[in-house]
């Protein structure tokens, strides 16, 4: 065979560098991965909260994304408990956003003239986050390499301006570029002086094995429920406190500014991850499922609307201050 083998295919880390450089050169701020467990790059506050409100944003980051139910003990060559998404948020989306995206493919070594490219309808939805958008899955020679979404709603609120989101599946793209059949065979890095290769398997297989075992076999259901309850209670407590403070005329600017919205959001994310763990463990019946999802949805939607209320105040405050001589 060897037809598709690219001699100079990018390593996993070069792929990441190249995309980061590409988007940095087009005005994106590069952020580091968010350090709380999330199921997708969208759930990072750098997307979820920044798309709210009128302030323009261009940001890009790689986000390790945990989905306990997708774990396969490292036995399946195409499924991971944790994969890496490269997330680009452009608010508002430039007119040539699709062309920019196609240029990014050229940048990572995909010569579009040699491939079959299709934009197929795929609308994204995260009901628990009150978020949805329309867009496509980008198919390259039959492989879904990117999810492209125009966000319409987030946190249950209409967005204006909307944001464009480009989510690259880094493992898939690296596997495609390097023409390997198993994710674990992807070359992660090459030592320039010795030529020694480090593979994805060397870096991550143990993690897949152990976290699959933890999620499916070891996790203690009762304590996971208890953690969920505690995080939820803490989040609700903060939400209530924030309501009081935001509605109180005597709240000082400083207290206002320090309202821990990001803390609330993080607690809600913790709940979401615990839900996923319990789900993978097979501990949530269909009946419970709807109820627990509604509880987490409440946390996230209330956090989003508190964020908006607080920021509406901040933006107004900034505006007023800007007018002072």
């Amino acid at each position: 065979m060897g037809v598709g083998v690219k001699k100079k295919a990018l390593t996993f880390q070069e792929l990441l560098f190249t995309l980061q450089r590409f988007w940095a050169e087009r005005g994106c701020v590069l952020q580091q991965p968010y350090d709380v467990e999330v199921g997708a790059g969208t759930m990072s506050p750098d997307t979820f909260l920044r798309v709210l409100g009128p302030k323009p944003v261009r940001i890009a980051y790689a986000q390790p994304s945990r989905r306990p139910a997708d774990g396969r003990y490292g036995e399946n060559p195409n499924r991971l408990f944790r994969h890496t998404q490269m997330q680009v948020i452009l608010k508002p989306p430039p007119v040539n956003v699709q062309e920019l995206y196609l240029e990014s493919l050229q940048a990572i070594g995909i010569d579009l003239r040699e491939h079959d490219l299709k934009f197929e309808e795929d609308n994204w939805e995260w009901p628990v986050g009150g978020a949805w958008g329309v867009g496509w899955q980008v198919m390259l020679d039959g492989l879904e390499i990117t999810q492209f979404t125009y966000f319409q709603q987030c946190g249950g609120m209409d967005l204006d301006p909307i944001a464009g989101e480009i989510t690259y599946g880094l493992e898939r793209i690296a596997g495609f570029l390097q023409d390997v059949d198993s994710i674990y065979d992807i070359v992660w890095a090459v030592e320039p002086d010795t030529g020694k290769k480090t593979t994805y398997g060397e870096m991550r297989l143990a993690e897949e094995e152990q976290f699959s075992a933890y999620g499916f076999d070891y996790a203690e259901v009762d304590s996971l429920w208890e953690h969920l309850r505690l995080y939820e209670a803490e989040c609700l407590r903060l939400l209530e406190r924030a309501d009081e403070l935001l509605n109180h005329p005597d709240t000082s600017k400083l207290v206002h500014r320090r309202l821990p919205i990001l803390g609330m959001y993080e607690l809600a994310l913790k709940c979401s991850h615990l839900f996923n763990l319990l789900d993978a463990r097979g501990a949530i019946s269909v009946t419970e499922r709807v109820g627990v999802m509604a509880r987490i949805r409440t946390l996230i939607l209330r956090t989003a609307s508190t964020y908006r209320n607080k920021n509406a105040f901040d933006w107004k405050y900034d505006e007023l201050r800007a007018r002072q001589p």
Binding site: H115, D141, G142, D181
Partner: peptide, 20 residues
């Protein structure tokens, strides 16, 4: 040949999943 190779690779992965 390049495009065929890519499509066959994807299908193989999908079938492997199903087989698994």
């Amino acid at each position: 040949a390049v495009i065929r190779h890519g499509n066959e690779r994807v299908l193989r992965a999908r079938f492997n999943d199903a087989k698994f």
